[in-house]
């Protein structure tokens, strides 16, 4: 199993109560799973906990990547193993050109995996090739990362990073938010191009729309801090038609 999450119970440090309440979820290699659910149900918390953000109190359960415990690793160690998060709100980093950042990231991961640095010309070639696929202009790569980028540009830059870093397990947190339909198509094409037998994805979304373009193998419904239902793509359509009301009881 690529990702195996068992009874994960998580709160915010220093705050009583839990956000994730015994969440269990398995994602096999090569599959794309979607998590849908109402706002405030802990979808982003799940993404943050899997990638190692500070500030959470993990009270129980486990999360492993190919059988190895994830939760004890630093964020950068997880990244080097191939865990990638496309952020709901990508951070602006003034003064650091996107290209510089991306190359530093890739080489930091390679170093941790015992691989040689990618040379500047090789990197440039790789980045340009991927940028073209995602319709990211060369001048955007020279600008400070995400500074002054539109919502759509930021999301395209996230997927570009994913394409360059070639993760094993990618979490896409509300990648559709703030995108118009054209940008959504570009982003979805970029994501679809990355589907591979040894790569899994977890697509977190509030709306079904994204799943028209990124077809999931499995759809999970999350409510009240856990997975309350799972099914095929048709489950997303049902949710779109009926809303989350049916799950309100299950969440309690």
């Amino acid at each position: 199993m690529m990702i195996e999450i068992k009874d994960l119970t998580v709160g915010v440090e220093g705050v009583e109560g839990n956000i994730l309440k015994g969440l269990s979820l398995n994602v096999p290699a090569g599959e794309v799973h979607a998590i849908m659910g109402p706002n405030g149900t802990g979808k982003s918390t799940l993404a943050n906990v899997l990638t190692g953000r500070d500030g959470y109190d993990i009270k129980g359960g486990s999360a492993s990547f190919e059988g190895e415990d994830l939760l004890s690793l630093e964020p950068e160690e997880r990244a080097a193993k191939g865990i990638f998060l496309s952020f709901q709100y990508p951070v602006e980093i003034p003064g650091v050109p996107a290209m510089t950042f991306l190359r530093a990231s890739l080489n930091a991961q390679r170093k941790r995996r015992g691989q040689e640095d990618l040379s500047a010309p090789d990197f440039l070639k790789l980045a340009r090739e991927k940028a073209k696929l995602l319709k990211v202009k060369a001048d955007m790569l020279k600008r400070p990362l995400n500074v002054g980028f539109s919502g759509g540009e930021k999301k395209r830059m996230e997927i570009l990073q994913m394409a360059v870093l070639e993760p094993r397990f990618a979490i896409l947190d509300e990648t559709d938010s703030g995108l118009d339909i054209d940008a959504l198509k570009v982003v979805a094409e970029g994501v679809n191009a990355l589907r591979a037998p040894d790569r899994s994805m977890l697509v977190i979304t509030h709306y079904q729309r994204l799943l028209d373009y990124i077809k999931p193998d499995v759809v999970h419904v999350m409510a009240g801090g856990k997975i309350v239902d799972s099914g095929g793509p048709e489950l997303a359509l049902k949710l779109e038609a009926e809303g989350y009301d049916a799950y309100e009881g299950a969440a309690a």
Binding site: E74, A79, S105, Q109, L165
Partner: peptide
């Protein structure tokens, strides 16, 4: 920003150095 950079693979010192240099 620090978490974002570490999620991409930079270690904490490397991420800080990049931010400070910028």
């Amino acid at each position: 920003a620090l978490f974002y950079m570490r999620q991409r693979g930079l270690d904490e010192a490397g991420a800080k150095a990049l931010l400070i240099r910028a």
